[in-house]
């Protein structure tokens, strides 16, 4: 056994990874070899230092945000799985429910157009929040803080932040 192998065996002994017979043989060598005993002691000291020494850290983003990202990814995965698993919706279902509801929606739209130019055919998000996204390519995520004081719509979209020079004068 060369020096390198011996060092690794001593380490394995410290780590409790040696089998009974090998461990016994090495322990016998340790008794007669001061150098190996010192190595054993040093490795044991380093192990002792490292035990439970992982520095605790706090996630650098808020728990709400972290969860919103996770739940969004879970939702996306489940939608994708459903999309792959299920056949397209039947025409019967379409005729039975979607067409009459679309009729009602059109009437509501006609009424509401007299008051505002904004269409009301939006996605209901729960509560009184509605979201309309015009580009399917843009990934979007919405969430509220626990106390509902801040509602956030996060878009996977980079807008141009440059200011007009005229605007800079006005600011």
């Amino acid at each position: 056994m060369n020096e390198n192998e011996t060092q690794l065996k001593i380490q394995a002994l410290v780590d409790g990874e040696l089998t009974g017979r090998e461990a016994e043989e090495l322990r016998a060598r340790l008794e007669s070899d001061g150098g190996l005993r010192a190595l054993h002691a040093r490795l044991t000291a380093v192990r002792g230092l490292m035990a439970g020494a992982e520095l605790p850290r706090t996630l650098p983003e808020s728990g709400d945000f972290h969860w919103s990202q996770i739940s969004k990814a879970i939702g996306h995965g489940e939608r994708e799985a459903r999309r792959l698993a299920k056949p397209a919706l039947g025409a019967n279902w379409l005729l039975r429910w979607v067409m009459p509801l679309a009729g009602v929606a059109c009437l509501v739209l006609v009424l509401s157009r007299q008051q505002t130019t904004m269409p009301d055919l939006n996605i209901l998000l729960g509560g009184d929040h509605e979201l309309e996204l015009t580009d399917d390519e843009i990934d979007v995520m919405t969430f509220n803080t626990g106390d509902d004081a801040i509602s956030i719509v996060w878009l996977d979209y980079s807008i141009d932040l440059q200011q007009d020079s005229l605007q800079l004068w006005l600011d």
Binding site: N2, N4, Q7, R42, L43, A45, V46, L49
Partner: peptide, 12 residues
Amino acid sequence: GPVENRMELETV
């Protein structure tokens, strides 16, 4: 490997 392993293990 063998060269690095000849380095002395520091006492901590």
